[in-house]
Computed example of a mutant assay.
Amino acid sequence: MLFTIESDLLIVKINSKGMELSSIHSKTTKLEYLWQGDPQYWTGQAPILFPIIGALKDGKTMFQGKEYELPKHGFIRNSELGKVIKQEKDRLVFQVTSSPETLAIYPFHFVLEITFQVIGNCLEVKHLVKNTGEQDMYYSLGGHPAFACPIHTGEKYDEYAIEFPEVEQDHTWLIQPNGLIGNEGDQILNNSNLIPLQEHIFDADALIFKHLKSKKASLVHQKQRPVLEVEFEDFDYLGIWAKPGAPFVCIEPWLGIADSVNASGKLIDKEGIRKLSPGNSEIKSYQIRILEE
């Protein structure tokens, strides 16, 4: 089921399945900015990643001596766990609560609320995580929005780039065939703020950055204009990804990362994992702004 919210500038649609963004349509340009999915490449559009990011070593993790199996990126995407608890013209709130189904694969009692709110040219995606159990809760959280690229008919993929507001010195951590983070990196940003897009840039999977100074990433047409930006002040990592040759690009704010090849397999040791005390909650948000007028 699709739900619609809107501002004076944007119409946004969210799918109840996975609480996944389905459309970001500009009333001004009359264009669709979110990737619309295609089985030839990738049917996803903007899955919510919880309670892990990426893959686990051997597909499993240990907590208090017990083994748990979690699918890549967690159990929210493609699920019907989210229930709408509030709907207004410009705002939609989903809630997921722990259940016997989730406790079988993730040993924590929790509430997860996802709020989509649109104001002018900006869509905010807000995540509230609350520990409703009696022990410390460990989790990761991330966004995975995919944007159409190129946007305009007649343009080419290699006319676009990802641009940062700060000059960066960072490299991507190479992903192994099993989905784990390797020990080697590849210099991508060498005193630069621009990553030109081209057909083979994602042949080795996602670009993963751990040490960016910037807290914004923009999709820009290199010769003409900025198209959109993702602001991720609350997030520590950034992934950039597409299926090789596909007409989209994902800009992914993450709190957490896939297991490394050297991971201990213990959830509490997982890189980027967050700890939330019983009864406590925290809110993490990112914003998508359409910059074309």
Rank of each mutant, 00 (worst) to 15 (best):
L123R: 03
L123C: 06
L123M: 04
L123G: 10
L123D: 05
L123A: 12
L123Y: 04
L123T: 00
L123E: 07
E124W: 10
E124V: 07
E124Q: 14
E124R: 14
E124T: 15
V125H: 05
V125K: 10
V125D: 05
V125G: 02
V125F: 03
V125T: 14
V125R: 10
V125P: 09
V125N: 08
V125L: 09
K126H: 07
K126G: 07
K126A: 13
K126Y: 02
H127D: 01
H127T: 10
H127E: 03
H127W: 12
H127N: 13
L128A: 01
L128K: 15
L128D: 05
V129C: 02
V129P: 01
V129I: 15
K130E: 15
K130H: 12
N131A: 14
N131I: 03
N131M: 12
N131C: 15
N131F: 13
N131T: 15
T132L: 13
T132D: 04
T132M: 01
T132Y: 03
T132A: 01
T132W: 01
T132I: 07
T132V: 09
G133M: 12
G133K: 11
E134A: 10
E134Y: 06
E134W: 10
E134K: 15
Q135M: 11
Q135P: 00
Q135T: 13
Q135W: 02
Q135G: 03
D136N: 15
D136L: 00
D136H: 13
D136C: 07
M137E: 09
M137H: 13
M137W: 10
M137K: 00
Y138W: 11
Y138T: 07
Y138C: 00
Y138M: 00
Y139R: 07
Y139T: 08
Y139N: 08
Y139C: 12
Y139I: 05
Y139K: 06
Y139V: 08
Y139Q: 07
Y139L: 05
S140E: 15
S140M: 15
S140P: 00
S140W: 04
S140R: 08
S140V: 03
S140I: 00
L141A: 12
L141N: 08
G142D: 04
G142L: 02
G143E: 09
G143I: 14
G143T: 14
G143N: 07
G143A: 08
H144I: 02
H144Y: 06
H144D: 01
H144K: 09
P145E: 06
P145S: 07
P145G: 05
P145T: 02
P145L: 12
P145N: 05
P145F: 01
P145D: 05
P145H: 06
A146E: 02
A146Q: 10
A146I: 11
F147V: 06
F147A: 04
F147C: 08
F147G: 09
F147H: 04
F147L: 05
A148Q: 11
A148W: 04
A148S: 09
A148H: 06
A148I: 12
A148N: 05
C149N: 06
C149A: 06
P150I: 03
P150G: 03
I151A: 00
I151T: 10
I151N: 03
H152I: 14
H152F: 11
H152D: 07
H152A: 00
